Simulated assay, not measured.
Amino acid sequence: MSTPTQDLADAGVSIWLDDLSRQRITTGNLQELIETRNVVGVTTNPTIFQGAISAGVGYEEAIAAQASAGATADDAIFALTTTDVRDACDIFRPIYDATDGIDGRVSIEVSPDLAHDTAATVAEAKKLHAAVDRPNVLIKIPATKAGLPAITEVIAAGISVNVTLIFSLERYAAVIDAYLAGLEQARSADVELSTIHSVASFFVSRVDTEVDKRLAAIGTDDALALKGLAGIANARLAYELFEQRFADKRAQDLVSAGANLQRPLWASTGVKDPALPDTLYVTELVAPGTVNTMPEKTLQATFDHGVIAGDTVTGTYAASHQVFDDLAAAGVDLEDVTQLLEDEGVDKFIASWHELQQTVATALDAAAENDR
């Protein structure tokens, strides 16, 4: 019998879990989600690792070993996270092989402290790629202004990239340019283009959270009627841009040479507003060749009661442009919204990263004390 997650997969959407921990790996939970929930990939970020490692479960021995070796907190974090990602890559390897590298992917992010430093981002991306040492790893690089040239350089080196923290259509267009430029440089260096993959992670629910707050402050009937519409319209217009840009001559020349499309990925798909359906950012963003990376709560809600009615994106572009026009008429500055969200996104990941550094430093001290 078909399930909503199977229906979603059949509609061309790859389901990736937005979570990873050593406990998920060692208990078989990750394998179970692959087998029962159609999960074909995993994404991580500093907040996810902060939650996993601060919980402590499954990391005690590894932290003790790091303490015995005299590791710093940053060294220990690098070792712990790359080990988790490597082990997850091994679990997903059969899917990677079966899909010719499209799915079976596990993402790991460069330190958010480097979000505004191009050279340091490139160096960290290469270091993470070498440490994980698996063909199905994706290195996450934020779509900040400093991140864009880093994306190009890392792609040019033949490393697959998950571009994260995309909020605006303008920045998404620049991300596509960065990817295509990287492919062109890779081709010039005789790097095999078919081995390079990329996804562009467009954040959804955070757009609604900020826009709806502004609409509530405006308070008119016209403004309030637009609540809950911005995030989906933004993502749908991103898909329109994806279709347009990858159909043009520049992209098609690269595809003809063996390059892969950079797939749109819907991130931040957990619904924050209890007044909205908990599967909203899944059922309303069904389109072929996309990825939806879900927190487990959203994944289970989709499996339980998601209604997948085929493609809900193609053909909605005029209505989505109208939502943007109506938001502007109501007094919402979307450019200001998306820049604020990018800044906040980087800051939140930096805060999580610093919390993780403190958590691991404390655990290393405790483990070293126990050794004495």
Rank of each mutant, 00 (worst) to 15 (best):
P4Y: 02
T5W: 01
Q6I: 05
A11M: 01
A11D: 03
G12W: 04
T26I: 15
G28L: 11
L30R: 03
N38R: 13
G41M: 05
G41K: 04
V42I: 13
F49T: 10
A67P: 13
A69R: 15
D74E: 15
L80G: 06
D84A: 06
D84K: 02
D87W: 03
E109R: 07
S111W: 06
A119N: 12
A123Q: 13
D133H: 08
R134G: 03
V137I: 11
L138G: 02
L138Q: 13
K140P: 05
A143G: 15
A150C: 09
I151M: 10
V163H: 01
L165C: 09
S168Q: 09
L169T: 07
V175E: 00
A181I: 03
A181F: 04
A181Q: 14
A186G: 11
S188Q: 12
T195V: 13
V199D: 00
R206K: 10
A216K: 15
A225C: 03
L226R: 05
G228M: 02
A238R: 07
A238H: 07
Y239V: 06
E243A: 14
K249D: 15
A257K: 01
L261R: 12
Q262W: 05
Q262G: 11
W266E: 03
T269D: 10
T269P: 07
G270K: 13
V271F: 13
T283S: 12
T293D: 00
T298Y: 05
F303H: 15
H305V: 12
T312W: 06
A319H: 04
V332K: 03
A351Y: 01
W353M: 08
H354S: 10
L356W: 03
